[in-house]
Simulated assay, not measured.
Amino acid sequence: MTRAEEQALLRQLKSDYRHILINYFTTTDQALKDCIDKFINSIFSANIPVPRIIEIHMEIIDEFSKQLKLEGRSDEALLDYRITLIDILAHLCELYRCSIYQ
């Protein structure tokens, strides 16, 4: 993968993850589950390391925090979004586990 392709992939993953974060606590439909599965499969296929996933999470949470502060609102609720990260990493671990035993 070229550097440009890698950057484009990371931008797309960040966009997908932002969508997941925004909808994680408000939507329980199959579309969100499919989005999470697609995100996990993309990360797995591209061999994205876990620290990079955490960086993406922190970058987006930081952006959300700045926006909330600009609006004069507390960013305390963003702590709950750690659950999303844990869920994503758990799905990724399961995918790794399944790939090892196939």
Rank of each mutant, 00 (worst) to 15 (best):
I22K: 05
I22R: 05
I22E: 07
N23V: 03
Y24W: 11
Y24F: 15
F25A: 07
F25P: 03
F25D: 02
T26Y: 02
T27S: 15
T28N: 15
T28M: 10
D29A: 13
D29E: 14
D29S: 15
D29T: 13
D29K: 12
D29Y: 06
Q30K: 09
L32I: 04
L32G: 09
K33F: 06
K33W: 02
K33G: 14
D34H: 04
D34L: 03
C35T: 05
I36N: 01
I36F: 01
D37Y: 05
D37I: 00
D37W: 03
K38R: 13
K38F: 08
K38P: 07
F39G: 04
F39R: 02
I40H: 03
I40L: 08
N41M: 11
S42D: 10
I43W: 01
I43K: 02
I43D: 05
A46K: 00
N47H: 15
I48V: 09
I48S: 06
I48G: 09
P49E: 10
V50D: 13
V50Q: 09
V50C: 11
P51M: 01
P51G: 01
P51T: 01
R52S: 12
R52L: 14
I53P: 09
I53N: 09
I53R: 05
I56D: 06
I56P: 03
I56R: 05
M58G: 08
M58V: 00
E59R: 12
E59Y: 13
E59W: 10
I60G: 02
I61Y: 08
D62T: 11
E63H: 11
E63M: 08
F64P: 00
F64C: 04
F64D: 02
S65E: 07
S65M: 04
K66G: 04
K66C: 06
K66D: 06
Q67F: 14
Q67E: 12
Q67N: 09
Q67G: 08
L68E: 04
K69S: 13
K69V: 15
L70Q: 13
L70R: 14
E71A: 09
G72N: 13
G72W: 13
R73S: 11
S74F: 11
D75L: 01
E76S: 12
A77W: 03
A77I: 06
A77K: 07
A77D: 08
L78I: 02
L78H: 03
L78W: 03
L79P: 08
L79T: 07
Y81E: 07
Y81H: 08
R82C: 12
I83F: 09
T84N: 04
T84K: 03
T84M: 02
T84G: 01
L85N: 00
D87M: 04
D87G: 05
D87H: 09
D87W: 01
